[in-house]
Design a binder for these strands. Structure first.
Lengths: 243, 243
DNA sequence: GTCTCTGGTTGCTCCAGCGCAAAGACGCCC
DNA sequence: GGGCGTCTTTGCGCTGGAGCAACCAGAGAC
């Protein structure tokens, strides 16, 4: 993670969601305009409400995007992994960041100021299309989660969150898939709109049922299938088709 | 609403969120590529899951965007008024509509096929920026509502929904502001992730308190101030600062 | 090894809000 | 203007899950 060479970064960007379809020469250009920033665990990249003046791509590690409610309780909107972009709205004058971004573990990000972003967009019109695609995807995902929150019960939402995390940061280990991210009960609660108590209870139950194993900030899904069944509210396994 | 002339439409688009910053000549061009479609109340423009092949701007009336959950219960994502665009993702090949759009009352929309949209984008790069701005705005709004749903209680959410509706479709009448849209308890429930029963109870209480007057599919806010206070959880009025 | 700190568990209580049923009120159509 | 269908209200019971407190466990720190 330390001996990162420019060519690695070029490859990362080429694979990422924002700069794809740019040829390597252009990527090198783009990269030249970036500033790399190293963050320690839990460092803040930008804060909700601040004027959005820079656009950012994770080059290593991971970011957590959150929003805070009135009385201090947070909501996790999503995690941003290597190659992924965030703060696309930094393109405009006058906008504020709608979320706070914090590092999950040691993390490095590439940042571009607004001017640089606009310059890039002008030079590479394909980027505009990528931006739109990216935003559409995010929008769809949040809408989806909104619907879930509005219509599903807690267990189902937790199952969905876990399934997503497995897909996003799952790592095969023996006995199952590890969610490769320090993930506390509190975190899961903030992802699903519930409390750490309820999450704890639900996970305990699933552990009894052999669906997963969990420890301190650690979840290993041993039966992804069963989890999906719960997430999708399929009658699977025992007839738990409640609602 | 019937004797709509092209010049009216040009003006509508110029004021709308998607085509702003185009000059009238270009707008006429753009308009020439559109198809106008008249819809009766509750007619479907497009359905969740269908391949997204057309982009659309409301020219008169209003659309309701919904998503359905597993067992038939719906969620209302937002209303789309005259001049507003929707289905921006129709720009891409292969995407499906993530929501269903239905007319609220007699409505007319302008539609463009994907090819036409891409042609427009190519000819008028400013449109790409508008698209990004538009999507950013939507994203921020949904994220906001997600946070509310995750952290706030029902009454507060209903207050917020009403405040938004007042801003969006409020019409001054004597004694307050009418929400100019047939709005049933069920609708409010689908906007706020609750049930029509709870909405009914809450509205009754507020009616007693003199905050609003409501009838069949009709809400007149008589004290917007009080409603905002509830929405923002300010200590306002009586000391009801629960939570 | 022990101390401390953070995170997890679990029992208990309580209540916001859901779900249902039955009755009421409106608007509309013929 | 009478009937009907849709929307609304309200009482009642019930429960999912919040909130708290007390306790437990593992991981560093020293």
């Amino acid at each position: 993670m330390d001996k990162r060479r420019p060519s690695d970064l070029v490859e990362l960007l080429a694979r990422g969601d924002f700069f794809r379809d740019l040829d390597p020469a252009d990527l090198a250009d783009v990269l030249a305009a970036a500033r790399e920033r190293r963050l320690v665990d839990d460092a803040t990249v930008f804060r909700e409400g601040e004027p959005a003046d820079r656009f950012c791509v994770v080059s290593a590690g991971r970011l957590k995007l959150t929003q805070l409610g009135a009385d201090g309780n947070e909501v996790i909107l999503r995690f941003v992994g290597p190659g992924e972009a965030t703060a696309a709205l930094a393109i405009f004058e006058g906008a504020d960041y709608p979320v706070t971004a914090r590092a999950v573990g040691p993390t490095t990000v590439l940042e571009w100021g607004r001017d640089a972003v606009q310059e890039m967009l002008r030079r590479h019109p394909a980027l505009a299309v990528n931006t739109v695609r990216l935003l559409s995807g995010r929008l769809r995902e949040v809408q989806e989660r909104f619907r879930e929150l509005a219509t599903e019960r807690v267990a189902q939402r937790i199952a969905r969150a876990l399934v997503r995390l497995v897909r996003q940061v799952g790592r095969k280990v023996d006995g199952g898939v590890l969610i490769d991210l320090p993930l506390s009960r509190q975190n899961l609660a903030e992802l699903t709109g519930t409390t750490l108590f309820t999450v704890s209870r639900v996970l305990s139950k699933w552990e009894e049922l052999g669906i997963l194993e969990s420890g301190r900030e650690r979840v290993v899904v041993t039966s992804p299938h069963a989890l999906v069944a719960i997430a999708e509210d399929l009658p699977e396994e025992r007839g738990r088709g409640k609602r």
